[in-house]
Amino acid sequence: MTAEFNQETFDAVAEIIADLSEVDKSEITPESHTVNDLGIDSLEFLDIVFDIDKKFGIKMPVEQWMEEVNEGTRDGDDFFVMKNLVIRIEELRAAA
């Protein structure tokens, strides 16, 4: 399934991240890596996933993503760089 970057979804996710972390919304760009650039820790990330799940009515398969990264079958950037995270969310919304 393919999906495209959605600016509204990006803005909503950036809003959630800014609300739940120390990151200022103006610092968040489509190229930002949620961990390496924005410094979001695992507990904050869980809060963010919870809010994204609720807002979009999806269940982000973060455990599966981490397995794929750890097995070397996917690059972490595919999931944790903002523009790619937005595309993953759009894929999940389309499948919901």
Partner: peptide, 9 residues
Amino acid sequence: EHDGSGFAV
């Protein structure tokens, strides 16, 4: 409240 991936609320 929510059954997430690897977490629950």
